[in-house]
Design a protein around this nucleic acid. Structure first.
Lengths: 222, 222
DNA sequence: GCAAAAATAATAGTAATACTATCGTTTTTG
DNA sequence: CAAAAACGATAGTATTACTATTATTTTTGC
């Protein structure tokens, strides 16, 4: 059993992968393979082979590749929420907390030794490259009811409440943070692959600075 | 021949669909089918059947479904660029132009009678639902060189230059408008499917207001 | 108005994918 | 230690994403 467990809705798996050794190996290997070859090119067959196990065994844990991706991304948001809560304890003003939250969204995180089967850095790269694929489908409404997007929503709510502490009259806290979180991912992707869509030259610091300015200027509204 | 032709890189098709009757019918039907059933569920077989033609005929125009989507999305950005240029002629200040640009991104557009084979409203819904899928792939760098993302980049550049007219010292014009354009799409999607991720209650006006505030506050920077 | 060229329709076929099902063996657990 | 659960091995199916071939229709240049 892990010292730290990130909870993910039980609609996101067939059989809880955190409960068995094979399950954890599936998570670990899936993150690596998906980050390396991309969601489209990954198959359960390949995961099975890489684990020296079988396709059928992977299907015992996840109904399909889409559910696996949704699991991993929800795990990431859950984990980020834990990190934010930890960090916020040390900080006193909502503005400091928002600044720190944006850094956590952009900078790669340190390895947490309590969770040896998850490589957080690789998982973060995976989220940057794949996260809109979990909601941009025709099944979004059904999956929303199953809790596929709870992690994302909870982080938006948390940050939105900090914004309201700074300016209780701010009208768009949810829109702002779904935009900021989304931009945190896409600016990382653009900096690497489509640089004409960003202005980040010195890397992640620029992204953090851009997002922080945009966030605080929006909330304070002149 | 059309009165108005939107130009799209010739790397985005096998055979130019604007040049033949079947080609235009493929565009028209693809937009409808993809908007209705979603990118993942669409196949060239289904397009062929819907046209009372064949799968092989569709392959003569597009190498695969991904290229077809990239074509349609580039067509959309090209067309939006034309619309913006038209509208900007009537407007005098960069701020007015930016306000109008944001409206064009969010509100459905009127049917242009010069282009009978494209349903702009349906195409816009398609872009909202599918656009990040053209760059979130492992082939992004190769496709970038083929000009798959030129339409998007050009709009970002144009709007970025308007921002610099308002404040020549603004540091992040490209990041800001890739974020705003992306948010214009995703806020529409969230309002409909994941309402906890937005604050839009009275519909598209709220989205426009949120984006306009965010944009102008960012550019003016206190 | 006709021959050549181009475009299309019809059909077949292949490799890969996304599963589902069955069954024997190993491991866990009460 | 018996029952249950998990796992590995294997097989099989429907669909997808193409490629190839050939016959027919349409277009075009002279």
């Amino acid at each position: 059993m892990n010292v730290l467990n990130i909870s993910v809705s039980n609609k996101l798996y067939n059989k809880n992968p955190e409960e068995t050794d094979l399950g954890k190996r599936i998570l670990s290997k899936s993150i690596g393979l998906m980050a390396e070859m991309g969601y489209e090119h990954l198959t359960f067959k390949k995961i099975g082979v890489a684990l020296e196990s079988t396709e059928a065994s992977v299907y015992r844990y996840f109904q399909n590749k889409h559910q696996l991706l949704a699991y991993l991304i929800n795990w990431y948001w859950g984990w980020l929420e834990v990190k934010m809560a930890q960090e916020f304890m040390m900080l006193n003003s909502p503005e400091e907390k928002l600044r720190r939250a944006i850094q956590l969204l952009v900078f790669p995180m340190d390895k947490d030794e309590r969770i040896p089967h998850i490589n957080e850095g690789t998982l973060q790269r995976l989220v940057v490259a794949e996260y809109p694929k979990i909601y941009l489908t025709k099944e979004v409404d059904a999956e929303n009811e199953e809790g596929y997007f709870l992690g994302y929503k909870r982080i938006c709510d948390t940050l939105g409440k900090l914004a309201l502490q700074i300016n209780p009259k701010y009208k768009y806290p949810h829109s702002l943070f779904s935009t900021v979180i989304s931009a945190a991912q896409s600016q990382q992707f653009f900096t690497e692959h489509l640089p004409r869509l960003s202005d980040a030259t010195s890397g992640k610091e620029d992204i953090v600075d851009f997002l922080t300015e945009m966030t605080l200027n929006s909330i304070q509204n002149k």
